[in-house]
């Protein structure tokens, strides 16, 4: 009997909770639609506001896209990080070949490429125009050369320096030359630019927060009497705050969409000249856009900043409004 009552109570409680949840859902849907309606009611003002937010989001996002593209180009250059190994003169062609294989087995080396001294001579003869001078020599002046491509983890200099020291210590090697410092410099430069973009993003994100916060502050101010009346008739803080939070949400969504649109248009404009330039270098390189993942992230960041800005503003300014 009492157990039956208990289950009845539990079922009742469950129903009540479900009802509360449904109401919460309904309230949110209402506030969401309502604030969208408010947004549409002042299209010019809100569009200007959203454009400012969109541009603030588009700036760092487009830097990221640019950086991404530069990285994808320079990633191909990792291969040109190469160490030229001049072998001792007394190493025979056969020994050079087996030595190259031995180097191949080193985990720090991606691949090797043996340039036979005779081939080198032949190539030099045909290219340099010093054929006569070379004929005057009675011995091939070129040593056997191995081009080693080190395995790049992050292009870090000390790792490669260490590798070179090890290589030069080998008896077969006369001299190791590493002449791709400009790529190192490029990587460092990219790293600096990357940090600049991060700093810039943080600053512009703060700007978006402040812009949304201020807009919501003005909206709260403009609807002061509505807030007062709502509080007087028993509106909870959550109820009263909700439309303002949702308008922050819409600012974020539309700001993110505008940012996405700006970047997409910019990429469209740049696409053709970049491809033509790449063609001149014999490359198939093509600007890559935001893609689905990054577009979603951009939109999410927009929503996050919009909601965050309005949340801060609501917390700061709503409490101050009390009826009468």
């Amino acid at each position: 009997m009492s157990a039956e009552k208990k289950t009845n109570n539990r079922a009742k409680k469950k129903r009540e909770l479900k009802g509360l949840f449904n109401m919460w859902l309904l309230n949110n849907a209402q506030a969401c639609i309502y604030s969208l309606g408010q947004y549409m009611r002042q299209p010019v003002n809100n569009l200007l506001m959203t454009a400012v937010i969109g541009i603030s989001l588009a700036l760092p996002a487009s830097f990221y896209v640019l950086l991404d593209n530069v990285r994808s180009v320079s990633a191909g250059w990792d291969g040109s990080l190469q160490i030229t190994l001049f072998l001792q003169n007394d190493i025979s062609d056969l020994d050079a070949l087996s030595f190259a294989k031995q180097l191949d087995a080193d985990p720090r080396i991606e691949s090797t490429n043996l340039i036979n001294r005779d081939d080198a001579l032949a190539e030099y003869r045909s290219l340099s125009g010093f054929a006569d001078a070379l004929d005057a020599l009675d011995e091939n002046p070129f040593p056997n050369v191995i081009i080693a491509h080190p395995k790049i983890t992050d292009g870090s200099q000390p790792e490669i320096d260490l590798l070179i020291v090890d290589l030069e210590a080998m008896p077969e090697i006369d001299n190791a030359q590493y002449d791709s410092q400009w790529i190192q410099r490029l990587f460092h430069l990219l790293d600096i630019i990357n940090r600049v973009v991060i700093i810039l993003s943080a600053m512009l994100a703060t700007a978006v927060l402040l812009i949304v916060g201020n807009t919501i502050r003005l909206a709260i101010h403009n609807r002061r009497s509505e807030i007062e009346i709502s509080k007087l008739f028993g509106g909870t803080d959550a109820f009263i705050q909700r439309p303002f939070l949702y308008s922050g949400f819409w600012y974020g969504v539309f700001g993110g969409l505008i940012a996405w649109l700006l970047i997409t248009i910019a990429l469209q404009i740049l696409d053709k000249p970049v491809r033509e330039l790449a063609n001149l270098y014999g490359s198939q390189f093509k600007l890559s856009g935001l893609g689905f993942k990054n577009s979603s992230i951009l939109l999410l960041i927009g929503v996050f900043l919009g909601l965050g800005g309005s949340w801060v503003s609501v917390k700061r300014h709503m409490r101050a409004i009390e009826p009468l």
Binding site: E228, I229, K231, L232, F233, G234, T236, D237
Partner: peptide, 20 residues
Amino acid sequence: NRIPYFRRQIGFIFQDHRLL
């Protein structure tokens, strides 16, 4: 935080109407 629920048992009328 219970004040809103308390106020729902009350109706208000003002001299200056206070309509939206």
